[in-house]
């Protein structure tokens, strides 16, 4: 088991390296750098001005070298201006060249400086992740129990009335992407055209002061899209368990139906949904981006859109590192958890 985890962590690191290099390569293509220079300086810069701006920032080196600098395994590029001052990504505003370290990458714990937010990336990421973490927490609190209950109730008696109604509900929610359900919710519950006005159409206030009124709709929108899929998986797994021999034995012994479901079937039926819930995270990340834009909640997904729209390289790199690690970690947890939950599988 220890070796298995070690191997998985190794593969994980390799994947993360490849992916961050890919993002680095794409954001460092020349047209993107030109865009960065123009958003940093002004939009009427000539080609020579763009080139000199990029030269000063060290953007014109080859991509592997820049990537090494970002990682912190190569000394970072220094440019001496005409007045003798030295500029480098290691030298923060207010520091001198001598006092600053030569190496500054993520290995040294330095994530860079966000050109769009004009702040250190680690501060930006920390703040945005906190906001999105709160959103995700509530999504999980709403989504997981509802999905499991719906799935178990539907799969308990395959083909029954309850099963058909709940399956119809589940299939509708999987067919409704966030930008459709969110828009429909906003239209029904917040607009003055319908006139219900139960909730707020914007979650901006929820960043400081989340209440049911301004936070429920974004949470519901994300949770619904993921809910249907988990519910259907739970239903399939529950239906399969209910046809097994030991459940039949229990029924023939005369165990009451609620007892069969709760004591005998539930544990085995919940193994598969556990992996599904863990593997839902990449999709939830998508939902988060859409919903944060839709409801103007300035969290991680919103930062992603801003960083990508303005080619904020350092921030985009940090965002992709975080999201890739979230995805890979959940995959690892789902694999390990699967082994622990299911005694029939043992990895030697």
């Amino acid at each position: 088991m220890g070796f298995f985890i070690l191997r998985r962590v190794g593969i994980m690191l390799l994947t993360a390296l490849c992916l961050t290099f890919l993002v680095f390569f794409l954001t460092n293509l020349y047209p993107n750098l030109e865009k960065l220079a123009k958003t940093q300086g002004n939009f009427r810069m000539s080609d020579e001005q763009v080139a000199s701006f990029l030269e000063k920032g060290g953007y014109l080196q080859s991509t592997p070298i820049k990537y090494g600098e970002w990682l912190g395994v190569l000394p970072s590029y220094r440019y001496t201006n005409e007045d003798g001052t030295v500029q480098s990504r290691c030298i923060l505003p207010g520091d001198t060249a001598e006092a600053s370290p030569n190496f500054c990458g993520i290995l040294q714990g330095y994530w860079g400086y966000s050109t769009y937010f004009e702040n250190e990336v680690s501060a930006v990421i920390g703040k945005r992740l906190y906001l999105t973490g709160r959103l995700m927490l509530w999504v999980m609190v709403l989504m997981v129990p509802t999905a499991l209950i719906v799935g178990v109730l539907a799969g308990m008696k395959e083909g029954s009335t309850t099963d058909r109604t709940l399956s119809a509900f589940a299939i509708t929610t999987t067919a409704t992407p966030e930008y459709v359900s969110g828009v429909i919710f906003i239209a029904i519950f917040t607009s003055s055209a319908v006139g219900l006005k139960w909730f707020k159409g914007s979650a901006t206030q929820a960043m400081e002061n989340p209440t049911f009124e301004n936070f429920f709709l974004p949470v519901l929108t994300i949770a619904l899209f993921g809910m249907g899929y988990i519910a259907r998986m739970t239903r399939a797994s529950m239906a399969e368990v209910m046809t097994t021999q030991y459940i039949r034995t229990a029924r023939l012994k005369g165990v009451s139906f609620p007892n069969i479901v709760i004591k005998h079937a539930l544990r085995n039926a919940l193994i598969a949904p556990f992996t599904v819930i863990m593997l839902q995270f990449p999709w939830l990340l998508n939902g988060v981006v859409i919903v944060e834009i839709l409801f103007n909640y300035k969290g991680f997904g919103w930062a992603l859109v801003q960083a990508a729209g303005n080619n904020d390289i350092q921030l985009l790199m940090a965002i992709s590192v975080v999201s890739v690690f979230v995805v890979l970690l959940t995959q690892l947890i789902s694999d390990i958890g699967y082994v622990y939950l299911n005694p029939r599988i043992r990895i030697s």
Binding site: L19, N286, I319
Partner: peptide, 15 residues
């Protein structure tokens, strides 16, 4: 392992 939206934002821009 790539979030789809990040991939789109990296691949489908005019630049």
């Amino acid at each position: 392992a790539f979030p789809v939206i990040l991939l789109f934002y990296l691949l489908v821009t005019p630049e």
